[in-house]
Design a protein around this nucleic acid. Structure first.
Lengths: 134, 134
DNA sequence: CTAGTTGCAAAGAGTTTGCATGGCG
DNA sequence: CGCCATGCAAACTCTTTGCAACTAG
């Protein structure tokens, strides 16, 4: 799969890369690319291919039926746990030291091997906490 | 909502309580209760009511379109982060001290307020790791 | 009694798939 | 030119909803 580098595939990946700090739904992506000659099914097929090849991550948010997709920036994301803000939808990366320590502690005390790229902690980020107070 | 205590509602909650260490999908629950005179729509309606009243938790697993439900055992789950085994589907609770420390560290370094009941770490539990080695 | 709850079937949202057409290399 | 990817529409899965019948209190 994904043998030819079509315009649609390039545009889709470009869009995910330039929004690498957010989780986007298929419909958000399709909407953003509606002037780029790409159909909903092509969006889904390309997202699926990109996920299988490990270039993007697929996430689900509690409370939503949709799946969300995000480009995996290996430099920034490697070995880090993720924090997703339920207010603004942005994804943050947990500090490397804390991530590492947590994983080790959990592994030692429970024998549980956490899969980092699959695990997401939900909550409210700094910015959204501020605006809640207003 | 949930003003009358019907047989269906009792059976459903009983079933979730007796499986409090697992996350169950609506179809798994409906299947398990198929001899108890409860329809799929009643399963969904009761799950929704129970979630709103805070008796159960609704989770999504990456890779699955379904939602999963779990009884909230307040004694065992209070203030703890959750670990979900992607192999066997069982839910574990992260040690209280580690949970607390993690939350404090994240709050300090990133200003991010983690919602514990919503956040789940995915990975492989001790038992399933063993069986993988076989 | 009567408002809450149910079962059924139909509708809905999000996603996937079959097929014929079009395009990359 | 041949295989891959695309668009479209239909199919599919999971979940929600409208409605008439039933039932707990």
């Amino acid at each position: 799969m994904a043998k030819y580098n079509t315009e649609q595939r390039k545009k889709l990946l470009d869009y995910l890369i330039s929004n690498a700090d957010s989780c986007l739904s298929a419909s958000q992506i399709a909407e953003a690319l509606k002037n780029e000659d790409i159909s909903v099914s092509a969006v889904y097929r390309n997202l699926s291919d990109l996920e299988k090849s490990g270039r993007i991550r697929k996430l689900s948010k509690s409370g939503s039926r949709e799946s969300f997709y995000q480009y995996i920036d290996t430099d920034r994301c490697k070995d880090r746990l993720h924090l997703s803000c339920v207010e603004c939808g942005k994804l943050f990366h947990l500090d490397n030291c804390i991530s590492k320590k947590l994983l080790e502690e959990v592994s030692e005390s429970d024998g549980f091997a956490i899969n980092k790229s699959q695990s997401v902690l939900y909550g409210v980020c700094k910015n959204c906490k501020k605006s809640d107070e207003v």
